[in-house]
Structures are given as structure tokens and as C-alpha cells.
């Protein structure tokens, strides 16, 4: 009987990995190769180097951390527009608390982080509350949070950025471990690894995908739909705050004006990585590669001397191309 299934045994092999991510990896490789060729042709320094790799990772750390949370939100069938505001808010809260306790040394830094993360949890809880309890569409609920959080950031600092921060404050953003590896890159990689394991290997991750794929079926299968959504929005908000702490540490200030429009950059990375905006389908690994594709593009275009307006045009084209190719792959 040819139709009847035989037990498929063994772990998903390398071939599965290539089938799922092959297209994205090829796109990334082609992109790197193109910049390398152009760089050689122009006679400038070669594009591909360890330093450049670290530079690219370093520059994508903030979006990277946030995009892990956004991937969960989008797979669960939602969207979170508040992350840009939360990036600013996290920096502001972290900076304010750290400065207020500056005499306590490292403790001050820890307290700043903790306060900012608590603020992120609160924001996530609000999003979750409106989306689950009051059934407000995520787009609208998080749009409201985006506006309020942005305003709150300005209100608590009274307009001008928080500066005069202790020297330790740059730990997250500018400190390198073993002289080479930025702390921010490590934070990002940990977020990706943790996110990937959570999504692929735990019941929670399965529940997130089930909800995005069909919320009513999931509920009737005993999936705690509201609780999972709640956690997902809290996770995304907290990761946005972490991104904000890194940014504020890089700038050694708490600036309420930063992060405007960052939600769209983050969503772009997630979508280029093959996650479906209609929910249910997507991977953390894909988001990581999508993030790199966009980061390499930005760095590469600067490397070969293109100004930022041109870069924006090309970014738009790349997003469209990536989504089209993904659709094509789905149809084939």
C-alpha cells in the first residue's frame, strides 16, 4: 500500500534545514558576494572580513533582540506596533534609575535594567489585557500603547535626554568580551537561541503556532489561548525594552526621541525571514537570516558609498522581493 505512512524516524536532517532556509541563505550569500565584488571593483577595502561581520552583528543587535519577540507575536497571529516607543522608554527608564542610584556602582546598573524591564512587563500586560480580555485588534491596541508610551517617555524626562550617566552604563552597548565580541551581540545571540528553543521544542511554542494557525481550533483543543497571547505580548515588550537598554547604553544617554519607526524595521526583518503576517507560520532562524539580509544590505550599501535615500529605496525592493520569492516557494 503505497499511501500508508511509514514511521519517519530520526531527527530532521541537514537536508530539512537546507530545504527550509536554503533560499534565505542563498539570498544572503549572493548579497555578500555582490558587495564583495563591487568593493573589489571599486578598489576599496574588501567587504567580507571578521571585523565587518562583527560590525554588522553589532549594528543589528537591537533590532535582532526585538525581532525575536516580534516573531512570536506575528506567528501568534498578532502584531506589535509599540516596540519602537518601548525602545525609547526602556532607555529612558534605565538611564533615570541608574543615574538616581549612581553611587551604588554596578547595583545601580542592575536596578536600572530591572526597572526598565518591569516597565516593559507592564506595557506588555496592557497590550495583552486589551487584546485578550476586551478583544481589541492587536493593531489598534498596540497602536494606542505606542502613542501612550512615547508620550510617557517625554513626560518623565521633561523633554531633554538623560545624560551624565556613570561610566559603567556603556556595558551593554559598547563593552567587548575578550576584547572582540560585543556584549550586545551576545545578548542578541542568546535571545535568538532562547527564542528558537522556545518556539521549536516547548509546548508553549507549539501553542503559539497553533493559535496563529487557528485560534478557535486551538481553544477547543485545550490551548490556553488568552494566557499564551498575554505571555507573547509581554515577551515582545520586554525584549523591546532590552533593545532600548542596549541603544541607550551605546549612546550613554536616555533619549525619548529614539526608535521612531523601528517597529517597521523589525517587522521587515521578520517578514523577510519568511514569517507569514497572517500567523501560524514562521521560524526564529528565518528571522535571524532576514535580519542579517537587511543588516548586510545597509552596511554594504554604505560600504560602497550609497547615500541613505537610495538605501531606503533598495530596502523596499528587497522586502518585496523576499516576500514574493517566499510566496513562489510556497506555490511550487
Amino acid at each position: 500500500m503505497p499511501h500508508v505512512a511509514t514511521a519517519t524516524s530520526g531527527r530532521p536532517a541537514a537536508s530539512t534545514f537546507l530545504r527550509v532556509y536554503g533560499f534565505l541563505l542563498v539570498a544572503l550569500a549572493l548579497e555578500c558576494a555582490a558587495f564583495e565584488v563591487i568593493a573589489r571593483y571599486q578598489g576599496i577595502r574588501p567587504f567580507l572580513s571578521v571585523d565587518n561581520l562583527i560590525l554588522i552583528l553589532n549594528q543589528s543587535a537591537i533590532y535582532g533582540v526585538v525581532s525575536v519577540g516580534m516573531t512570536f507575536v506575528i506567528i501568534a497571529g498578532g502584531i506589535d506596533l509599540s516596540v519602537g516607543s518601548l525602545i525609547a522608554f526602556g532607555g529612558v527608564v534605565g538611564a533615570l534609575v541608574t543615574r538616581a542610584l549612581a553611587d551604588a556602582g554596578w547595583w545601580a546598573l542592575g536596578a536600572g535594567w530591572a526597572a526598565a524591564i518591569m516597565a516593559g512587563l507592564a506595557a506588555g500586560c496592557f497590550s495583552g489585557l486589551f487584546i485578550t480580555r476586551f478583544q481589541i485588534p492587536p493593531f489598534i491596541a498596540t497602536l494606542a500603547i505606542m502613542s501612550s508610551v512615547r508620550g510617557a517617555g517625554y513626560l518623565i524626562v521633561g523633554g531633554s535626554p538623560v545624560s551624565d550617566l556613570p561610566a559603567d552604563y556603556i556595558f551593554l552597548g559598547r563593552y567587548n568580551i575578550a576584547g572582540h565580541v560585543p556584549v550586545s551581540v551576545i545578548v542578541m545571540l542568546v535571545a535568538f537561541a532562547g527564542g528558537g528553543i522556545l518556539l521549536n521544542s516547548t509546548p508553549f511554542g507549539r501553542h503559539v503556532r497553533a493559535i496563529g494557525g487557528g485560534a478557535e481550533s486551538a481553544r477547543l483543543s485545550g490551548v490556553p489561548v488568552n494566557r499564551v497571547k498575554w505571555i507573547v505580548y509581554c515577551m515582545c515588550s520586554v525584549l523591546a525594552i532590552v533593545g532600548g537598554l542596549i541603544l541607550s547604553s551605546k549612546m550613554r544617554s536616555g533619549d525619548p526621541t529614539v526608535g521612531v519607526g523601528d517597529e517597521l524595521q523589525v517587522i521587515a526583518a521578520v517578514v523577510v525571514g519568511g514569517t507569514s503576517l497572517s500567523g501560524g507560520r514562521g521560524t526564529i532562524m528565518g528571522t535571524f537570516i532576514g535580519l542579517l539580509i537587511i543588516a548586510v544590505l545597509a552596511t554594504g550599501l554604505t560600504w560602497i558609498g550609497m547615500e541613505s535615500f537610495g538605501q531606503q529605496v533598495i530596502l523596499g525592493i528587497v522586502i518585496l522581493a523576499a516576500v514574493l520569492m517566499d510566496r513562489f516557494k510556497g506555490a511550487a
Binding site: I197, S201, T202, P203, R206, H207, R209, A210, G213, G214, E216, S217, A218, L220, S221, G222, V223, G280, R281
Partner: peptide
Amino acid sequence: QGLILGMTIRENTTLANLKSLVRVLFV
């Protein structure tokens, strides 16, 4: 109400009793 159409047979089959498959934290 019955299936998550985008999920596999495996994922649909175990969805209502996933916790029985958990070892440590993982499925």
C-alpha cells in the same frame, strides 16, 4: 474547530495532550 490546517498530522494529533509528551521542558 477541529484542525489547525497549517500544522502537520503530528502536531494536530498531539495538540490536546501535549503535556503528556513533555520531558523536562521539551516536547
